[in-house]
Amino acid sequence: MKVLLLVFALVASVSAQTEPFCRCAAFVTYKNSEVMVYEAPKVIIDSCQDDAEQCKEACVTELNTLSNNGDLWLLQESGVTVGQTICSRLADHFVFWISNHRVYGYYEVCGGPWEYTEFASQQLLCCEGGKHEHCIVRR
């Protein structure tokens, strides 16, 4: 009986891993790298081959809903701005200063490459000592 339960659990875990899925995240882009600052819960899609557009649309909807179409100054229910949430996430990874960067949305289908959703923050992101600040753009 224990062996049967073990086999059933193994089959269930393998089949769960092969279910088509979509990942959605927001990144800050640097010259030679990307830093993930938010990841949405995975979305189940119908097919890894045919549903890239479904994944992209779900991702854009998620990011737009969370940020009121990319507004880094949106005050969330927690009383913290979207930008402060991002600055705090960066500070958790020892990035305390960031100046004049957009936040971009990307999606990934079934473990494939990250692809740009055409979502970008309305404002530039600036963090000073882990605090969200207004950016001063020097020309």
Rank of each mutant, 00 (worst) to 15 (best):
D51R: 05
T29Y: 07
Q49K: 11
V28W: 01
V43H: 06
L66A: 13
A52G: 12
A40S: 15
A26Y: 00
T65K: 10
Y38R: 10
A26D: 04
E34S: 12
E39V: 04
E53I: 14
N32I: 05
A40M: 09
Y30A: 09
K31P: 10
A26P: 04
F27G: 00
L72H: 07
L72S: 01
N69G: 08
G83E: 01
E39Q: 15
E57M: 13
K42F: 13
E53Q: 11
D71I: 00
N64Q: 12
E77A: 13
L75T: 12
V80Q: 09
N64F: 02
L66I: 08
V82Q: 07
C48T: 05
L74E: 08
D50H: 11
D50Y: 15
K31C: 12
V43Y: 15
V35L: 14
F27V: 08
L66E: 01
N69Q: 08
G79M: 02
A40D: 04
K42Y: 10
G83H: 02
I45P: 08
W73K: 11
E62I: 02
A58I: 01
Q49R: 13
L72R: 03
D71S: 04
N69H: 06
A58V: 06
V43S: 09
I44E: 06
T29W: 11
E34A: 15
A40Y: 07
Q76W: 04
L75S: 13
